[in-house]
Nucleic acid binder design. Structure first.
Lengths: 190, 190
DNA sequence: GCCGCTATGTTGACATCAGCAACATAGCGG
DNA sequence: CCGCTATGTTGCTGATGTCAACATAGCGGC
């Protein structure tokens, strides 16, 4: 699982309960879907009482939102790396190749952790109600937009950018929903 | 809301409780999201006791699955109509126009009832566990595939078909998640 | 016309969950 | 050494999903 990036959570009694709860929620989500993510069960996994989570999250939704936000941070990292790295050793990346790499990273992210991807984009969470989640999502989309814009500097190609985003996003959803497999989706990119 | 298409549900005591429960679930879904869809609340809305729904659905998930299945049947109808209807009065439809019409119908469906679209594609429901849902989904995808195949009769264009599907599907998700508005999505189709 | 059968709906119960309030504890600074 | 605040616990309430037992209504057979 991706590394957590919480901000300096000082450890009092438990050590780092906030992290542990997010990790527990992640595990529950993978094993039993979003309905299986329960504050009480997460607390049990973390070895604390059923009400300890309320010291770190406003409620069940806030825990899910934190998990989704971690997902968006992970997606942003994946996109950043794909946008920065040279596609082949030594050669400079052509814009089109870079775009394909970006799409591949997006698809691989969705395929690697389908439950989190679905949590991020499933619409269960109202981003407006969770500033941290909104921020993380905006940063991920920003990373995507930046690389796309760098690849297509001409004006008027906004439509093409949106088409590229929609294509990749649609493929990612189809992969996450197991309608198609990841290899077939990647073959569709270029 | 779209018409229900249950199979000869004879009305005994309530009239047609199955339909009423699905309608109630639909209302709850639109008003409060999937978490608000509750067997007991649906029963209250239908005016029956809290356990009556179990005579028609195996449990909460089965009710949601039935609602999603209705959604897929509605999507199939929308796609069928878009594939059959002439795009302009009197003229025969060119394949490309027909494809665009199909995409437009898909997008309009997603935009018209976002909560149901998210239920259908949100991954909360395991299609394998609900044969009726799997059947309805397969029929909707079949309708889509048929029209796409009719528009692109050449072999080897399977990749293009998948790209078209993914593009429309991605746009639909972006619309359902309010990342973009429906008009911008439709402008991306052709 | 009456009897029993099955589909349908009801009542009651139990375990689990989210969330609230009151309380306990641990580390920190004065 | 004292008290303050962050953290965690215990106990409770109301709602929910689901099971079991019971009640009722319409139908077919006689």
């Amino acid at each position: 699982m991706w590394a957590l990036s919480t901000s300096s959570e000082t450890a009092y009694h438990h050590g780092d309960l906030r992290r542990s709860l997010i990790a527990a929620a992640h595990e529950l989500l993978r094993d039993g879907g979003v309905e299986a993510v329960t504050l009480r069960e997460a607390a049990r996994l973390a070895g604390v009482s059923h009400n300890a989570p309320y010291r770190h999250f406003a409620g069940r939704e806030a825990l899910l939102a934190a998990l989704a936000a971690e997902g968006f941070r992970g997606l942003r990292r994946a996109l950043d790396e794909a946008g920065r790295a040279a596609p082949s050793a030594g050669r400079a990346a052509m814009p089109a190749e870079r775009l394909t790499d970006l799409g591949r990273a997006y698809l691989r992210f969705a395929d690697a952790d389908r439950p989190v991807f679905r949590l991020m984009f499933g619409g269960t969470l109202e981003r407006a109600a969770h500033p941290d989640l909104a921020e993380a999502a905006a940063q991920a989309f920003g990373a995507l937009r930046d690389v796309v814009a760098a690849g297509e500097p001409a004006a008027g190609t906004e439509r093409e950018s949106l088409r590229a985003w929609a294509l990749v996003h649609g493929l990612a959803h189809l992969v996450a929903d197991r309608q198609i497999d990841a290899a077939r989706a990647e073959a569709c990119l270029a």
